[in-house]
Amino acid sequence: MAIEGPLRELALTDVFQLLDLSRKTGTLTITPEDGRSRPALVRFDRGAVVAAELGHAHERLGHLLRRAGKVTEAQIEAAHLAQKYAPGRGLGAILVEQGAVSADEVRRQLKFQIQEIVFELIQWKDGYFRFEEGTVTANGNVPVRVSTESLLMEAARRVDEWSTLETKIPHMGVIPVFVMDSPDGPTLDLHPKEWEVLAEIDGTRTLKEIAQTLGRADFDVAKIAYGLVATGVADIREEPAERVLTPTAGGLDRPLRDALGEAQLALADGAADRARRVLDELARAHPDRPEVYTLLAEAQRRLGRWGEAMISLGRAAALDPLAGPVHYQMGFAAAHTGDLHRAREAWDTYLRLDDAGDAPRRQRAARARDAADALLSVMGEEGQ
């Protein structure tokens, strides 16, 4: 018999406790109230949590292992290639089989993913849950098992601490902004983890995106951000209006920036084709967003689709003509397609724009433009 009902009547913490105490085995499906986002899945085995899926978070294993320094980009790419010939096999299991990483390390990262997903789900107040009993498997990955009781205890601790954090960090969707930029300001005395978060602050990404990039727990990043804000090193601002839910292909609605973050994580994991599919969908739904085309061009570049990258960069430049990095990348894309005239023009445009914060890139653009000039001159002499 299925157990189901609205979250307004029975909180997920109560549902988890019920499944734990009754040692249930099966799958818990949690659907957001709007019914448009992808449902979350939590799999139980005799009351313990053995897997959790929320959006594409379960596909981040490669990114987490690489951030932890346990695998290389080449090993991730080799594992993704092997996955194509072994449908149903998890990335972690393949990496272990290839000797790239230990099963214990994969298990540790899988537990981390389960914990973060469960902690996020427990905060949901609206929606609908349904638990169906049935056999669960390791989903082709290294088997993992997390005590439901420990998850709930940690969740309770975080809820208590959030009452303090929320005075400055109301939620993970806020955008941190670095404000201590005076040359006469005090020398920052930060711990390595604090420096790590500070280095990711660019005034455009949310705390959640920074946590995903770093492969760290949302709660840990929020605590560090709280300290940075409290000491005046950083400030926070709410998300701009365009970051509300927007329609995408396939009938799903999700935040544009979350979808871009999903594509960025796919690129970080070496899954350029998956990133391209996500970005193709976004481009159809958001034809007026230059950042979508810029990231799409990056995915196409990694796949060696230089002609397609040229088209995407051209659209990005048309939407934001003053975006220097777009012209910079367009130069190389044009060079790869053999259009040296357009490459030279793109680099020249980039050098005329203000990008003083990246001197090495300006130097490379100048060298590339001069090289194109030299080659075009020689080709002209040869009548080419």
Score class of each variant (00 low, 15 high):
V174A: 08
I311W: 06
I236C: 08
D202C: 03
A82W: 07
R67T: 08
L228W: 07
R89D: 02
V278M: 11
A138E: 12
L322H: 09
Q384A: 15
V106D: 00
P176N: 05
N139Q: 15
A93M: 04
R284Q: 15
K223W: 08
G383A: 06
A272G: 12
A271I: 07
L19C: 00
D320E: 14
L152N: 00
A230F: 12
A371I: 10
G215A: 01
P39K: 04
A48S: 15
P32E: 02
A316D: 04
E133F: 11
A222C: 07
W162S: 08
Q113N: 05
R364W: 11
A368G: 07
G314C: 07
W195L: 13
K111R: 15
A334K: 12
N139P: 07
E291V: 11
G69T: 01
G140Y: 04
R277P: 05
R284T: 15
L151S: 03
D354M: 10
R130I: 04
R38N: 11
A86F: 06
T248K: 10
A346T: 04
Q329H: 12
R302V: 11
T167P: 06
A82P: 07
F44P: 05
E77N: 10
A334R: 12
A372G: 06
D280C: 11
D235H: 12
T25L: 03
T13V: 00
K24Q: 15
I311G: 11
V278H: 01
L190M: 07
L121P: 00
T248R: 13
V229G: 10
G338T: 03
R157Q: 14
Q123G: 08
A86R: 14
D370N: 14
G270T: 04
V50P: 01
L282N: 05
A241V: 14
G232Q: 08
P290H: 10
L245Q: 09
G314Q: 02
Q212C: 08
P290F: 10
L252S: 12
D220E: 14
A155H: 01
T294M: 15
L322N: 13
